[in-house]
Design a protein around this nucleic acid. Structure first.
Ligand SMILES: [Zn+2]
Length: 327
DNA sequence: CGTGTTTGACCAGCGC
DNA sequence: GCGCTGGTCAAACACG
């Protein structure tokens, strides 16, 4: 099941960023700017100031390449999100109104199932727990019931000590604990609709990156998204990106892109009452992902993530020094 | 005064 | 059996 989410991508979501405007052959971002920055009138063809055939060919090639990139991006996102929808559907249809709380007593076995199911996320956890978004389903022993377990990372202000991940839902904190492998405390939250809603979440800063908040969700909400507040939109974690529900982080296991599909824009949420569960429009998501704004934000966030990664900057410095023997 | 948060105590599973 | 650990409970507290 997790294979569909991660392994199925073949080269993992990392492929995504490798395909995004970082082609060593050409400069898609430059091409993009060329296209974007040029006033609409200049694109019409009537203005052929100095547009030679060669230029046209080059531009065309660039456009083709961009289209190809867009297509791949869209495919990846659709595949990722498609799997999610499939599972949501599966759960939504099969799960009883109350997914039940197997928590009393059976916790260990449940957790061992979780780790077995999400080996990727697990390995990430062992290396610092920076998987931006991982999901797994823990089966309650005996029954075929499944508990959705997902992990989401958010970048926050390191000075922000409140372990709050704004996701639109209302949470009630019921505990906080300092864990062994992480100096920062872990906060335990229950859905404000408990006990009718069994969802819980654990929030803890990443041991390696204190500006990274790792939220682990257990279970699924069995109620509509509660009164979303427009002022609390999940600001794209990387800082750049505005309304784009995307964050990027890099860890020892490689860069990961999170498209936070549990988030909705304020405008969409008015309609949301008619569609209780959070999943936004797939087409909308794909369109947004393929949009120049998204790509710009993506590149910016990748650059930001890269430059904030000491390993990368170190390696970069070493590479530069190699090219400059006189230094 | 009602509601939500904080925090120490308690419990259960696991390894030795 | 004992100690360690993660998870939960509930009394105390803070805040509106
Ligand atoms: Zn809920």
């Amino acid at each position: 099941m997790d294979a569909a989410w991660r392994g199925g991508v073949g080269c993992s979501p990392v492929c995504l960023d490798l395909c995004v405007g970082l082609s060593p052959v050409r400069e898609p971002s430059a091409a993009r700017h060329e296209l974007l920055d040029r006033p609409a009138g200049c694109r019409g063809g009537g203005d052929s100031k100095s547009m030679t055939n060669d230029e046209a060919m080059i531009l065309e090639a660039k456009v083709t390449q961009m289209s190809e990139e867009n297509r791949r991006l869209t495919e990846v996102i659709a595949r990722l999100y498609g799997g999610q929808i499939a599972r949501l559907g599966l759960d939504g249809s099969a799960s009883p109104p109350r997914p039940v709380s197997p928590l009393s007593g059976k916790k260990r076995s449940r957790e061992s199932m979780e780790t077995a199911n999400s080996c990727d996320a697990n390995s990430n956890r062992h290396q610092g727990g920076d998987a931006d978004h991982a999901e797994s389903f823990a089966a309650d022993d005996g029954t075929c019931r499944r508990i959705k377990v997902s992990r989401v990372c958010r970048r926050i202000d390191p000075s922000d000590t409140s372990l709050v991940v704004k996701d639109g839902y209302q949470w009630r904190k019921y505990g906080q604990k300092v864990t062994r492998d992480n100096p920062s405390p872990r906060a335990y939250f229950r859905c404000a609709f408990a006990p009718s809603c069994p969802v819980k979440k654990k929030v803890q800063r990443s041991a390696e990156d204190s500006s990274l908040l790792v939220a682990t969700y257990e279970g699924e909400h069995n109620h509509p998204h509660p009164s979303p507040r427009a002022g609390e939109l999940p600001a794209a974690a990387g800082g750049a990106g505005g309304s784009l529900p995307c964050s990027i982080s890099i860890n020892s296991s490689g860069p990961t892109i999170t498209l936070d599909l549990t988030k909705n824009g304020g405008a969409v949420q008015v309609v949301e009452a008619a569609h209780p569960p959070p999943p936004p429009d797939l087409k909308e998501v794909c369109r947004e992902v393929a949009s120049p704004e998204f790509r710009t934000a993506l590149v910016e966030q990748m650059a930001s993530a890269l430059t904030s990664d000491p390993k990368f900057t170190g390696a970069l410095a070493a590479a530069i020094l190699q090219k400059l023997p006189e230094f």
